[in-house]
Nucleic acid binder design. Structure first.
Lengths: 186, 186
DNA sequence: CGACTAAACGTTAGTGACTAACATCCAAGG
DNA sequence: CCTTGGATGTTAGTCACTAACGTTTAGTCG
């Protein structure tokens, strides 16, 4: 591993640890950098903002590709659901643990909550784009994406708040199943 | 009108004007305050943040009440749709013009876009609460709210981008009608 | 080994949002 | 007139984030 990647990882793990101890707003970038043995400029060379150290998901673009890759004969809702489930199936227990820490962190800070919303919105946009590629109207795409992401977000927060959560993949798959049963079948 | 309200209005109109001219990030709070003939502290006594001068909607709580007030025998989707339409019907042409300026401003600034998402999320939470009051499950509530707000947001941005938009109320009502026709009938 | 080069990092100085503490002004009411 | 409370100003500070420029480190090639 290159030196710069090591530094990056060190910054990230130090930051998340400190955030868990004293809250996102109770820790300065200066502190994180110092505790990782670097200057604050090095922090900003690895992470564009203080928030981005918590959220650096490469998840969104993948979701888009997976949704776009679904069979065109399927309805928009089903293409989206299958795309998301396909993405989730790639997560292992370590990913789960990591995601859980981050989501728990985020629910405790207004700054991070805002950032989650932004991520969510980007994911929604990506899905909307993917759906439109296969001929779904803009409005229908946004409705489907909004509904499914609403369910996913709700389930994600639920899951991260539980004491002994099962697998995220399984939990969200069930949530999306419920959603189908609820009657949305665009 | 009290002196403090005058100051507040002056700050707000100066701010929005400057934002339209040079973009949200191209204007400092110092400038806004100076141009309104006050100090930056006075600005912060009237608005908690720079963004809040663009968004100070008292709209969300009202939506919640309207949704909660709908007939319990209706399905969740219909309660929400009627609640929102009821809220929209209170808007006159001046409100429309104002909303249009703000939305156009917001779509041009990443900072303000983030703020819109936050507002949206608060509205969603309010609707979810209102729906749950009448016995809808948390998951179903979030799905319905997510879907409807997705449609509303999409339509709102569409509308604000048009050269000669009609009435917002009419536009959004149609959008929500389409949504119903699309097949969501939880 | 020693010089060279590029990536990684540090220092310094600055901007701008936002806050706290304290001082001042100004419009009523007594 | 004078007092009192609300509105405002001043000052000094914190913190996220950026720009410019200097320094170190790691690997490469002669």
């Amino acid at each position: 591993m290159k030196r710069s990647e090591q530094t990056r990882d060190r910054l990230q793990s130090v930051a998340i640890q400190l955030f868990e101890e004293r809250g996102f707003d109770g820790v300065t970038v200066e502190e994180i950098a110092h505790q990782a043995g670097v200057s604050h400029m090095t922090f900003y060379r690895h992470f564009p903002t203080k928030e981005s150290v918590v959220f650096d998901d490469p998840f969104d673009p993948m979701i888009g590709e997976l949704v776009a890759a679904q069979d065109k004969s399927l309805i928009a809702f089903e293409r989206t659901r299958r795309g998301i489930v396909a993405g989730l199936s790639m997560l292992d227990a370590d990913d789960d643990h990591d995601i859980r820490r981050r989501v728990r962190l985020a629910t405790g800070s207004s700054t991070l909550r805002a950032r989650i919303l932004e991520n969510n919105h980007r994911t929604e946009d990506v899905i909307v784009q993917a759906l439109q590629l296969n001929g779904t109207s803009a409005m229908e795409a946004r409705v489907v994406a909004g509904a499914i992401l609403g369910a996913v977000t709700s389930a994600l927060i639920d899951w991260s708040g539980r004491e002994s959560p099962g697998y995220l993949h399984q939990y969200l798959t069930e949530a999306l199943g419920v959603l189908g049963a609820v009657g949305i079948d665009v």
